[in-house]
């Protein structure tokens, strides 16, 4: 499975990169995609009609899109960012004209005919997904446990003056303090998780579908907050305002830090149909 890249391909061969699949409406068939950059090194982004569907595609150099090249690309944060953003830009543009099913980064076919055949083979699935995501957007919601307050050193009460030897029990007091710190940390985490659960439960009420993504742990940048919920919701366009109001209200009510991102093309809601 891992080594399916075709080594017999001439180095200058072009392959067809598919960004997204839309309905072949007049709006999409006549959409202007010429201004889009697409993948680095690729030819012009263009439309590939196939029956009632239209794909947004680009011819890219095969040599730049082999397994091996992607392996090293995935280990370079700057490169992966460049390709991910290029992919996202085209997907977002495709979705401006109507529902668009985003394909995962680096979905490639030998040529247009193979791409068309793949779309035709899966046409019923694409239509189901397109129906599901029409007039919906994806919204990401992240909940953070607030930064840990600095542990206030409790005043040491044992021993009055500084000159006396530590009173008996100082070691025990120290251990008790340590235990207290640990317990408070546990309590904070439990509180944060229960806030996350109730936020998710309330947001699911306005969503057509929801998914949990992996959490990111501690947030880089050093402010110490910890990510406790990474959820994403498929929300009807006419309810997006309601979602925003609800998120703000939940933030005020729970005191948790809640971040809302979106609207996204429904990346997270095209895989299970």
């Amino acid at each position: 499975m891992t080594h399916r890249a075709h080594r017999d391909q001439a180095p200058d061969t072009g392959v067809t990169y598919v960004f997204a699949v839309c309905r072949g409406t007049r709006a999409t068939r006549t959409a202007d995609v010429t201004g889009l950059v697409g993948m680095p090194g690729g030819a012009a982004v263009r439309l590939l009609p196939s029956g009632p569907l239209t794909a947004v595609v680009q011819t890219v150099p095969a040599a730049d899109f082999t397994d091996e090249v992607w392996q090293s690309r995935l280990s370079d944060p700057r490169e992966i960012e460049r390709y991910a953003r290029a992919h996202h830009e085209v997907v977002s543009a495709a979705a401006a004209h109507g529902p668009a099913v985003p394909l995962p980064l680096a979905t490639l076919y030998h040529d247009d005919d193979r791409a068309r055949r793949a779309l035709d083979d899966e046409a019923h699935r694409f239509h189901r997904v397109l129906k599901r995501i029409a007039h919906h957007a994806e919204w990401g919601v992240k909940v953070y446990e607030p930064a840990t307050a600095p542990e206030v050193a409790e005043p040491v009460t044992v021993g009055g003056g500084g000159l006396e030897a530590p009173a008996a029990g100082a070691g025990l007091a120290y251990l008790n303090r340590r235990r207290g710190v640990q317990e408070r940390r546990e309590q904070r985490r439990e509180r944060a998780l229960s806030v996350a659960e109730s936020v998710d439960a309330e947001l699911r009420e306005v969503a057509a579908a929801s998914r949990r993504l992996r959490t990111h742990g501690a947030v880089p940048g050093g402010d110490g907050r910890v990510h406790v919920l990474n959820a994403t919701y498929l929300v009807a366009e006419h309810r997006s305002e309601e979602l925003g109001v609800l998120v703000r209200g939940l933030g005020e009510r729970t005191g948790a830090m809640i971040e809302l991102t979106g609207p996204w093309v429904p990346y997270s809601f095209v895989g299970e149909v």
């Binding site: 399916r4 890249a5 075709h6 082999t66 992607w70 030998h110 699935r125 095209v270």
Partner: peptide
């Protein structure tokens, strides 16, 4: 995200 269709190349991605 979930794989919608399998491509011909670079399936590992």
């Amino acid at each position: 995200t979930g794989v919608v269709v399998s491509g011909d190349l670079v399936i590992a991605i």
